[in-house]
Nucleic acid binder design. Structure first.
Lengths: 339, 339
DNA sequence: CTGAAAGCGCTTACAG
DNA sequence: CTGAAAGCGCTTACAG
């Protein structure tokens, strides 16, 4: 097995009969290198199949040409969609940045500090990860752009979803159909509830309040996981704990997957949706339209958010002293048959 | 705005009153540094909040501590599930590798060469990307491990799914229910059909052959995209082009999403599933169980594949001269109500 | 037990 | 128009 030693700029210089400085300049289109010399250099590069070592280049330039994308876990529908938007942008624009994934199961702050201090990327995009003020300051001190999606972070660039409004829309839809005992299902309570869940609760409560109704704490439920089986067991729990005053509507702020689990279980128990029980989900995942009845839900422009996050990152990288931004995207009610 | 200069190993050395060599050795637990010296060094590190520059370290070590994950597009259910498996492993094992995403819309070979030549990672995992023999050789010559998932690559480490068998299982299921005119729906024909689609076709044909039947070329259809709307328009096309001998069964090797689109359109047209038309999908995406009737489909152990890919990568990294492997995972028929 | 020196592969003022 | 030199921040034989 031939274990070839990597070819360096010096090999190219030797073959072309110039100094390695000249090679570097030829590569970078530095003005004032003869066409003839340039040609010799490129011929040598071709011949040796030379590729600049990206690490060395990054070290001396102080730029990695990589963007960190940080999330607590990838591969949830939310992260997937946003990632898709980012990807689209990369391809459309031919921008020469790589993307490095960091997931933060344990200690988000530690990961973020390591990105900055270890110079592991030129900028970071955070998906539903909330940085401490100290960390935001750390990024700023190192002039490293930080884009925060779906969380709040004072004096950072944020791209948010109006979760408050999404929840209001969902709840109002239920109220319009005359639902009077509406249960609220929220996402995981593990540790910090997260801004989005908090906001959805607020939106739910305010929509009720607008009708002079009050949220009944016994009608608020939490889930642990996002598998639809969780939705099935949850409905059992809801019916049990609330009997005989079972709810006639459910706003499942924890997302469509859970909502679909609830719906399936309702059907298994002979309940009619929406006649006996109306359900509204959140996210509008692709299969929401395919279940029966099709699920009424809230759609968020996740791909657009991904694209925008990328654009903001690039902008921040190119104009380092630009203002921080606070962009908010509006959700949309998608009315189908489950209400 | 304070723009702090990064703290280097020299700053630490100065504060601790030792040479930078000693600092480096203290960090790496080099034997023969007094406890007292070590303590001074670590105190200085703490005080200055020093973090080694990862680029410099990688350059001198010749290792990036990053694994490249390459796919034509991320954020398809397939890639996401595999990625999830990889992620799990990273967290379970506390392994210190980062993961760098490379997507290869245009020129896969170019991306792969750049990863090797630019030293952008220590190893690469390919998701449904098929490397040329030259590229496989390039990886080998640079002793860079290459793990190929769901494609074939002579003399590389491969982790494959038995697509042939999956298709046979699906087709046999249809045949058992007495279906006699079975249509085959295959994925995108753009360029190379890809190994998995080719194998699924083979499996389909062999299952028919086992009953003395022959695949009817007029009953083979291709899709462009993987949105479920595509499935809806496809059924229209199928019915049109085959009338009056419309199929009584469809094996949708292009995946569940399309299968669900087909099913929705069938219901819209007043066809009964499975009485008038049986449908089998592929992938067992989470919502397959939720549609009505629930979709019969083929499940593949994607997360396990992700985990295994990671393990093989690490193994290859640690024992560079290990054998190439060829692992094959078996799919499983999940019988629900659509057949 | 600790330090001076060389080197990883590149870029970029600075001279000629 | 081209080259010699310094330096990015680290690691690691090699001497003392």
């Amino acid at each position: 097995m031939r274990r070839s030693k990597a070819v360096t700029i010096h090999d190219v210089a030797r073959l072309a009969g110039v100094s390695h400085t000249t090679v570097s300049w030829a590569i970078h289109g530095h003005p004032g290198i003869t066409e003839a010399t340039k040609a010799r250099v490129f011929k040598a590069i071709e011949e040796l199949d030379y590729h600049p070592n990206y690490l060395a280049r990054s070290l001396v330039r102080g730029r990695t040409n990589a963007i960190a994308v940080v999330a607590s876990f990838f591969s949830s529908p939310f992260e997937m969609e946003v990632l898709k938007g980012i990807e689209q942008r990369i391809h459309e624009e031919e921008i020469r940045y790589g993307i490095n994934l960091f997931s933060t199961m344990n200690d988000p702050e530690k990961v973020l500090r390591e990105i900055v201090n270890g110079k592991r990327a030129d900028a970071a995009i955070l998906l539903s990860v909330s940085p401490s003020p100290e960390t935001v300051a750390l990024f700023r001190d190192n002039s490293m752009p930080l884009i925060v999606i779906d969380e709040d972070a004072p004096s950072a660039r944020t791209i948010q979803l109006n979760n408050y409004r999404g929840a209001s829309l969902a709840t109002e839809c239920l109220l319009r159909r005359g639902r009077e005992r509406i249960a609220l299902v929220l996402g995981s309570t593990a540790g910090d509830p997260g801004l989005s869940q908090t906001e959805r609760r607020r939106g739910f409560e305010s929509a009720l309040a607008a009708r002079g109704m009050k949220a009944d704490p016994r009608l608020t439920f939490y889930i642990e996981d996002y598998y639809f089986e969780e939705g099935q067991t949850l409905l059992a729990r809801i019916l049990e704990t609330t009997a005989p005053d079972v709810p006639d509507g459910i706003f499942c702020a924890a997302g469509d997957m859970i909502a679909m689990g609830i719906m399936l279980e309702a059907k298994n128990r002979g309940m009619r949706v929406p006649e006996d029980l109306s359900i509204v989900g959140y996210d509008d995942i692709p299969s929401a339209a395919l279940v029966s009845p099709p699920l009424t839900t809230i759609r968020q422009p996740l791909m657009r958010i991904g694209r925008r996050a990328w654009d903001e990152t690039i902008k921040a990288l190119e104009t380092p002293d630009g203002d921080e931004c606070a962009i908010i995207y509006e959700p949309q009610l998608v009315e189908r048959g489950s209400v």
